[in-house]
Design a binder for these strands. Structure first.
Lengths: 231, 231
DNA sequence: GGACGCATCGGACTTTCGTCCCATGGCCGG
DNA sequence: CCGGCCATGGGACGAAAGTCCGATGCGTCC
């Protein structure tokens, strides 16, 4: 399920990327990361497209600290996108939703760890060190509950399917799930409708669905709603 | 937003319906309801279709005690269905999700009250009395937090739109949101595809969407997921 | 260099979707 | 008893979706 994270960057110069839409929290993560690294570089992004761009520019990034709730991503969709498009990059999810089942799902979707937003700087530093060392990190106070939770087979299955999508296919899927027509998707991506159709067909085949409604439903199961989102 | 609940049954013989898939809890609710009624009848149902059937058979029911999580309904969809098809019947939601934002959404979708599954029998009895008296009931310990929460305009809007759907249209919408073709929906409902198309067009018009993918997305916002459903 | 995956398109085609007319019959409330 | 809403269908139609054949480049990996 969780593909091996090979160190894209073998020397002792770890590359980190901090992806969070809250500047203050970004700074706090930055401090904790500095304490965890002897040396290395730390980038920042404030939304999902920015994160993808940064990874595209630095493909040998070792670790992304990812907030689940950012512009362009709610729930697990951002994580799924990153894991699908950059399977070699480890992702540690940072979230205020520190409930065992959320952590369980996050891990099942390929995250290398989970940091609660209420964690102390020291804990965050430990978490980063652990994950950079190819370990897995779960908040100590949640460890047992998470281990006790079974993986949802639907989740593992979904993660496996989504990971087969290419980057472009993932973009098409996202637009498709907003109810856009093929023609509109084509305009957004600056390609021809025929090409969109080709992608859509490939998406259906990989996800094992037969039409766009089913595909968008599948994507929706990635939503990790606050039980009552007010946004 | 919340249409007036006129007492369909003006004499002192209140009719209740308990809808919960857990027999034990159904019995507990039954006891609490008996304590709240001097006289009256109490029916039971264990899934959403059963609830709808029971209401169809007893349209002058006064109050339904509705579990949010039942076969055929997850999240707010069951509530929306009931409110849409039987606007004259008061619904009190019974759920373990006793978080303020859940309660807020439940009320915005037309519920007359909310009972936490951890409430005492006495509290449940009070709640039933209050609602039967055309009042609104929120657990005392949540009252302030719920009142402080703003109604999500999306929710009010969605509730208003969904309430305009007819019973049959609601069924069609449900099947449509599962990714079924018009032809398949027709088979399920034992009607012609043309008729399904007529319903679908009406649904789009009432919901203000332009295709089935958008319609199914709209319906999906009714999901009140446990943050990480394991089902 | 060659195999492979990917993105990009093209044509032609069938199916499904969605809309526009229209009509019928039932049921309910004024 | 009648006007209105509803569910049910019919015919025809354009638009969109989805599939099947094909092709061209562009990278990467071995």
């Amino acid at each position: 399920m969780r593909p091996p994270r090979h160190a894209a960057n073998l020397d002792d110069m770890p590359r980190l990327l901090i992806a969070d839409d809250h500047p203050l929290f970004r700074a706090a993560l930055h401090q904790a990361a500095l304490a965890a690294l002897d040396d290395g570089s730390i980038g920042e992004a404030c939304d999902l497209p920015g994160t993808l761009d940064a990874l595209g520019a630095e493909p040998d990034t070792d670790l992304v600290l990812l907030d689940l709730h950012m512009p362009g991503s709610r729930g697990l969709s951002g994580l799924a996108t990153l894991r699908g498009q950059f399977p070699a990059v480890a992702v540690m999810v940072v979230s205020a939703h520190d409930e065992p089942r959320v952590v369980r799902r996050v891990l099942d979707h390929g995250a290398a760890g989970f940091i609660s937003k209420s964690a102390s700087p020291g804990e965050i530093t430990s978490a980063i060190r652990t994950v950079l060392d190819c370990g897995e990190w779960v908040p100590p106070h949640l460890g047992e509950s998470v281990a006790a939770l079974p993986s949802d087979p639907n989740d593992s299955d979904l993660a496996a399917r989504l990971s087969r999508l290419t980057a472009q296919q993932y973009r098409v899927l996202g637009l498709l799930a907003e109810g856009l027509l093929n023609k509109q998707i084509a305009d957004r991506l600056a390609i021809q409708e025929r090409t969109v159709k080709a992608h859509v067909t490939a998406i259906f085949e990989k996800l094992g669905v037969r039409n766009r409604t089913q595909a968008s439903m599948l994507l929706r199961t990635l939503d990790l709603a606050d039980p009552a989102r007010v946004d």
